[in-house]
Design a protein around this nucleic acid. Structure first.
Lengths: 194, 194
DNA sequence: ATGTGCATGTAAATTGTTACATGATTCA
DNA sequence: TGAATCATGTAACAATTTACATGCACAT
């Protein structure tokens, strides 16, 4: 019987996985430990990409194996910790990925919109309520994003323009949906007022 | 040794899964077979929800077990086929779900935005190209959605208002993002023209 | 002493996709 | 007769999340 390697590390493929590129990008932006990467994701790209802690550590390993990042033990007191930096090769690989014309699939999974789609099964006032809920959700999201905007503008002033761009895209997207909700609220309440 | 049930049908839980509700909703709208449900999804909600064929048939089974839909064999010639209809209980369950105030998480996974976020690692003209690519992607999406609009308007005239609502939400969302892209294209090309 | 934050890691479960397998019907 | 479409189903695979497990540091 052969000794099987049961550890579930990702297979060594030619292509890096998407999470690995995300980790690489975050290391480039200054996140040093797995812990810091997770935090950076939550503070920035969480609106269009999430990554769980269980994906980060294997990705770091994978990246280091290829020499795209280099890590060294950097304990804080007696608490263990491994700090990473991006390498020259890593910089190149990241840029290549950014320039690569791959699909970049836009995947939206939104049960809110699904419910809205089926809302003709409801009474008119119930449907109206649903539209209002969906609108409120986007309004909350816009407020959250607007609260981050100053930080994005500051970063833009210091040469990191693109986080602000993605922030504005999020705001614009939800703002657009809010307007449509308002239009349909009028439409639904005029025909049969509450 | 106990006889294990190795078939991978979904565990019988209190809660129905999201795909099951999607299937239920589509059966209500007149999709009869698993095949028709898959088609209906591709023709309508695919922009904010997808479902693979491998999820549909177990969902149908699950729904029938609970009496939310009822199915009968309805072969076309000698080709086997099972046709479903929504039951009274199914109508109720669907409406309850639509009214239920659960999270309805909006989940976006977009490597395009991720790349944009990291685009400060690129030269200015390369970043500009990326912005243009992302803009083009949204423009294509808007065109696709606009092509469906007449069908949505027709459905709205016949009492199915909400598919048009979700269609307009998609258009508005991408239109908003397109405007932001244009603004940044100006910004990027003014400072250092190609 | 105790709760929160820093820090890393793994096992199990869940969820979803892709590919395969089968076979009838319709139309060119 | 051969391709496209209708129709159902499963096995294998891939991706991701959740939960668990561990332990130090620091402030209250």
């Amino acid at each position: 019987m052969l000794a099987a390697n049961n550890a579930r590390r990702p297979a060594y493929r030619e292509e890096l996985s998407a999470p690995a590129y995300v980790v690489l990008g975050m290391v480039r932006l200054g996140a040093r430990s797995g812990y810091e990467i997770k935090q950076a994701v939550e503070l920035s790209i969480r609106f269009f990409w999430t990554i769980s802690q269980a994906q980060i550590y294997p990705s770091l390993e994978q990246l280091e194996l290829r020499g795209l990042i280099c890590g060294h033990d950097a304990p804080r007191g007696r608490r263990r910790r491994r700090a990473y930096q991006i390498t020259e090769a890593g910089q190149r690989e990241l840029r290549e990925w950014l320039k690569r014309a791959d699909p970049m699939r836009f995947e939206l999974r939104d049960l809110g919109l699904v419910k809205l789609f089926f809302a003709d099964a409801l009474e008119r006032d119930e449907a109206l309520e649903l539209v209002t809920t969906i609108k409120a959700r986007s309004q909350e999201r816009v407020e959250t994003l607007r609260a981050i905007e100053p930080a994005g503008e500051e970063a833009a002033g210091e040469g990191n323009l693109h986080p602000l761009l993605t922030l504005r895209m999020g705001i614009a997207c939800h703002q657009g949906m809010i307007e449509v909700c308002k239009e349909f609220e009028r439409r639904l309440s005029i025909r049969r007022p509450a």
